[in-house]
Design a protein around this nucleic acid. Structure first.
Ligand code: ZN
Ligand code: ZN
Ligand code: ZN
Ligand code: ZN
Lengths: 158, 158
DNA sequence: CATCAGAATGTAATATTATAACCTAAACTG
DNA sequence: CAGTTTAGGTTATAATATTACATTCTGATG
């Protein structure tokens, strides 16, 4: 895992590096990081909590961007395709990827109290995929693991 | 994994054993497997494809059951609580559990073509949870892994 | 049996999340 | 510049899920 979100850190650095990485990737692939796409990426990175698509709408509106569901879903789809964000299915919410650029099995821990999410190293998951492929003959193309529980802070608080 | 759903099998036996197991569990816990709950369980087990809540409504209606979203969501919540069914978050859909009665990390392979889902042995996932707990200090309470890809049949078909 | 409490269900309305369809504008391509 | 592709604007609607409150059923108790 690239970073522990439960430790305090310079979060502006998180955002900046996410944007820089996005720009690099878009250049590489010859696609455009348009203003609304970049702004959605920044908003998703606003903190380490997964954010719902509809939470983004008013923020975009405030800033003079067009604000309608298709706008934000298009931007999110674009970012998902590039692997710049992940979707946390159990929350219908989106969060920035810590190591975009190479497609990878996805694994997050999400605190059920505060909502903070931590991306985890998912390499052990490859074992499961490999087993399924061998034993069942399936072909695994994608995978997502979501762990739920309490983060260190919320454990103390309760 | 208790069974390979991609092999042909007596599926009535799947349904029957699911219902029997449900009855046993309900007795044990002193809760009631009412007609609508049982019927929802049977409908979820109708095949090995995850089924959406709203797919169940017309089927219940046909059979004279009350049919409104709260009815089916209540039944599904009941079954989820007991661990009799799982929710596939990436599909907003529900599927019967192969080994209910003891809460367990959940892991499914879902074919993106035909929709069939196979529950997998999730023990390797405990390792991930253990690591997260050690390295981050989180407490993991639940976990779900969803693999997506092509099942053996759909690979041949393409 | 009569009564009561809790559990389950009925019903109407509404909230939340996501997509379809169709049109316009901007950006590359040669 | 003309033609093509890509992105965005706009309206409407689909799909999924929950709230709130009334009613009925069930099992327990006196
Ligand atoms: Zn940060
Ligand atoms: Zn990632
Ligand atoms: Zn079966
Ligand atoms: Zn299960």
């Amino acid at each position: 895992m690239t970073q522990n979100v439960y430790k305090s850190h310079d979060h502006h650095a998180c955002i900046d590096s996410a944007v820089a990485e996005a720009r690099r990737l878009c250049d590489e692939k010859g696609v455009r990081l348009t203003p609304v796409r970049q702004r959605v990426l920044e908003l998703v990175w606003d903190n380490h909590k997964p954010v719902g698509a509809y939470d983004l709408l008013p923020k975009l509106a405030e800033e003079g961007f067009n604000s309608a569901p298709p706008t934000v879903y298009r931007a999110l789809d674009f970012l998902l395709d590039l692997g710049l964000v992940h979707r946390i299915n159990s929350l219908n919410a989106f969060i920035g990827c810590n190591h975009p650029g190479h497609s990878h099995p996805t694994c997050f821990f999400v605190c059920r109290e505060c909502g903070m999410a931590q991306e985890l190293d998912a390499t052990p998951l490859n074992e499961i995929a490999r087993q399924a492929e061998q034993q069942l003959g399936v072909r695994v193309e994608q995978q997502m693991t979501e762990l739920m529980g309490l983060c260190p802070r919320c454990q103390k608080a309760s």
